[in-house]
Amino acid sequence: MLTQNPRVVFAKRPGTRIPVPGEHIIFESSRSIDLDSVPLNGGFLTKTLMLSPEPFMRERMRDLHVPSYSTHAVLGEPLVSFGLVVVLRSEKEGINPGDHLYGLTTWEAYTVQPYVEGRARHNAEEAPDYTFDVDSLALQVVPDPKGTFPWSRYFTVLGAPGLTAFCGFEGCTDAKPGETIYVSSGASAVGIVVIQLAKAKGLKVIASAGTDNKVEYMRSLGADVAFNYRTTPVADVLKKHGPLDLYWDNVGGEVVELAIEYSRLHARLIMCGSISEYSVAPEQRHGIKNTSMIFKKRLRIEGFLVPDLAPRLAPRFFAEMPGLVAEGKITAKEHITEGLENGPDALVAVLKEGGNGAAGKPVIRVATE
């Protein structure tokens, strides 16, 4: 018997624009699948429960001539991001019906896993040595929280955002009690974990976001100074509450220049993301005009990607974080969008600065079990 298998497809490259639902990313409901007889070819069949719209998805939509840290998304294929799935059938050893898995998966209701995008791989010119294949972040079995916390925590503190924050904070900051850190986009899925890790370490935390309710959310997580960058100039806050020992960058652009200006000697700037630049042409981006202060203040600026640090730090993350979450010492909030058909709008909201204004990590609930 055939079952409808809707999906969200990458239909057109947006160039330097923010993707438009219905033009660049399209919801399709015409496909179907036979859940009982579709060939598995040694793999396993999953039902999608939740999906996570992520900023890195925009980076993969870039034009083919533009290199970056990830491979390109493929036109005509479903979008790919982190998701929670349940196994319906399996021919793969170690994967059993009823197992829940978290990792990269397709934006469709049902998928024969492991999913591999139908594309020609990059040649040497298209894949510089800083590129890694996001499709290699495979689905992994995750334990049932059994009511201790909701499944959606795997999209925040126990998933990719939490691992990103943990690896960057523990691997790059050299944070010490009493120091001051500024976290841009502090209400983001990564930012909220950085705030909590920094407070647990004894740091003074300054954090910014684009709406007043997100400011209140950051305060509830322990931020000592939380402000709305749309209504309060960043420079005013850093001048009053700095100087900075640490800056955690999630947005890029002119805020980096301000962080350099208000850093003390030997401060560290940790570069995690640059969402303000993803949909802006290079010639329109803000240039940093105070680079001489980098050597004058002996600043350290470090960028990182999780795959570089995970071999060393992921075992600690998976050993320590679930217990902290279960005890309520590390917390998070999710903003749930119902239905895959609303996925394109949910993704676009993430890619706009400030998102949809709601506090909490956006998560798309595709189905219940």
Rank of each mutant, 00 (worst) to 15 (best):
Gly43Trp: 02
Leu45His: 11
Leu45Ser: 09
Thr46Lys: 06
Lys47Cys: 05
Leu49Asn: 01
Leu49Pro: 01
Leu51Glu: 09
Leu51Arg: 11
Leu51Val: 12
Pro53Thr: 08
Pro53Phe: 06
Pro55Leu: 07
Pro55His: 01
Pro55Trp: 00
Phe56Cys: 05
Phe56His: 03
Phe56Arg: 07
Met57Thr: 08
Met57Leu: 04
Glu59His: 03
Glu59Phe: 09
Arg60Ser: 03
Arg60Glu: 01
Met61Gln: 01
Arg62Gln: 03
Arg62Asn: 02
Leu64Tyr: 10
His65Asp: 14
Val66Ile: 15
Pro67Val: 10
Ser70Trp: 08
Ser70Asp: 09
Ser70Gln: 15
Ser70Tyr: 07
Thr71Phe: 03
Ala73Pro: 01
Leu75His: 01
Leu75Glu: 02
Gly76Ala: 05
Gly76Asp: 06
Gly76Lys: 01
Glu77Tyr: 06
Glu77Asp: 11
Glu77Pro: 00
Pro78Ala: 11
Pro78Asp: 01
Pro78Glu: 06
Leu79Gly: 07
Ser81Gly: 15
Phe82Ala: 14
Leu84Gln: 03
Leu84Pro: 04
Leu84Met: 10
Val85Trp: 04
Val85Asp: 05
Val86Thr: 15
Val87Met: 07
Val87Gly: 00
Arg89Gln: 02
Arg89Trp: 01
Ser90Phe: 12
Ser90Arg: 10
Ser90Ile: 12
Ser90Asp: 08
Lys92Ala: 15
Glu93Thr: 13
Gly94Ile: 15
Ile95Met: 12
Ile95Trp: 06
Asn96Pro: 06
Asn96Ala: 13
Pro97Ser: 05
Pro97Thr: 00
Asp99Thr: 08
Asp99Val: 04
His100Ile: 11
His100Ala: 12
His100Gly: 09
Leu101Glu: 03
Leu101Pro: 02
Gly103Asp: 05
Leu104Cys: 13
Thr105His: 07
Thr106Asp: 00
Trp107Gly: 08
Glu108Asp: 00
Glu108Ile: 01
Ala109Glu: 04
Tyr110Ala: 02
Thr111Asp: 06
Val112His: 06
Val112Asp: 01
Val112Ser: 04
Gln113Phe: 04
Pro114Glu: 00
Tyr115Met: 03
Tyr115Trp: 11
Glu117Arg: 14
Gly118Ser: 11
Arg119His: 02
Arg119Ala: 04
Ala120Lys: 15
Ala120Tyr: 04
His122Gln: 08
His122Phe: 10
Asn123Ala: 11
Ala124His: 13
Glu125Met: 15
Ala127Gln: 15
Ala127Lys: 10
Asp129Val: 09
Asp129Gln: 06
Tyr130Gly: 12
Thr131Lys: 09
Thr131Arg: 13
Phe132Tyr: 15
Val134Asp: 05
Asp135His: 13
Asp135Glu: 13
Ala138Met: 08
Ala138Lys: 15
Leu139Arg: 09
Gln140Lys: 13
Gln140Glu: 13
Val141Asn: 11
Val141Gly: 05
Val142Ser: 07
Val142Arg: 14
Asp144His: 07
Asp144Asn: 15
Pro145Tyr: 00
Gly147Ile: 03
Phe149Val: 09
Phe149Glu: 12
Pro150Asn: 12
Arg153Gly: 15
Tyr154Ile: 12
Phe155Tyr: 09
Phe155Met: 11
